[in-house]
Design a protein around this nucleic acid. Structure first.
Lengths: 108, 108
DNA sequence: CCTATAATTCGAAACATGTCGAATAATAAA
DNA sequence: TTTATTATTCGACATGTTTCGAATTATAGG
C-alpha cells in the first residue's frame, strides 16, 4: 500500500509540531477558521497573517515566528508573503494523513 | 459543548506522547494489532505485554518501560499486571478524541 | 527460601526545545 | 530617502527529553 516507514517519520514530525501548547493553539486557530456553527472545509481555509495568529497568546514575536516555522517544517502549515504580512493556512493533504492514522484498519 | 481548554491540554499531551519515534512505533503496534486485511475494532484490542512491544526496537528495557509509562500518562495506553508480565492496550476513548480533533467543524 | 524472569525506578550524561531581546530584513507609505 | 510596520534570524540561557546501566521490585516455580 503506502510506504509505512516514510509515513511514520512524517507522522512523528507532525505530532512533534503539535506537541507544544502554543503551536497547537496556532494550528487550531488556523483549522477552525470559521464562525461556530458554520460549515467550513479545510481546503477553503481563511489565511491569517502571522501577527494575527499570535494575538492573545502572550509570546514574543520571535517566538511566534519560530513556532510557525516549525509548523511549516512539519508540513502542517503553508506560508506566503503578501506585502508586509505573511499569510498562513493549513495544508489539507497533511491533515488528511493525520486523520487516517487513527482510523482502525477496515476491509469490507 | 465541550470544555475547550481542558481538551487542548489533553490533546497536547497525547501529541507529545506520539512525538517520539519509539513511542509512535509502540502505539502503532498496539493499535494495528490485527493481521493486515482483517477488521479489528480498537475496543477489542489485543493485549501485548511490555517486553513483546519492544521487540525489534533495539532499546534498553528501562527505556522501553519509560516510554510505555509516558503513553500511559498521556491516557493513550492502559496497563495492567498479569503475573510476571504487564499487559498493555489502547484506550479507545482517548483515540476517539484524537480522531475528532482533525475533523472540520460541520453543522448540518 | 532461593532462583529466574519481567518490569520499574533511579541517577547521570548527552542532546533538544522554548523563550527572550537585539539586530536584521522586507515591504509600504510619507 | 526616511520612517513605520511586520516578520525573521541569531545568540544565549534555562528547562526538558532520551537514553543507558545498575539497583530494585514483583511474581512464579522449584
Amino acid at each position: 500500500m503506502s510506504n509505512n516507514k516514510i509515513d511514520s517519520v512524517l507522522l512523528c514530525e507532525a505530532f512533534k509540531a503539535l506537541s507544544n501548547p502554543h503551536r497547537l493553539a496556532l494550528f487550531n486557530r488556523l483549522m477552525n477558521c470559521c464562525a461556530p456553527g458554520t460549515k467550513c472545509s479545510p481546503v477553503a481555509a481563511v489565511r491569517y497573517c502571522v501577527g494575527e495568529l499570535g494575538e492573545g497568546l502572550d509570546i514574543a514575536p520571535s517566538t511566534l515566528s519560530h513556532h510557525l516555522k516549525e509548523l511549516n517544517r512539519a508540513g502542517l502549515v503553508e506560508m506566503e508573503r503578501k506585502g508586509k504580512n505573511v499569510e498562513c493556512w493549513v495544508e489539507p493533504a497533511r491533515l488528511e494523513k493525520l486523520t487516517t492514522f487513527f482510523k482502525p484498519v477496515q476491509n469490507d
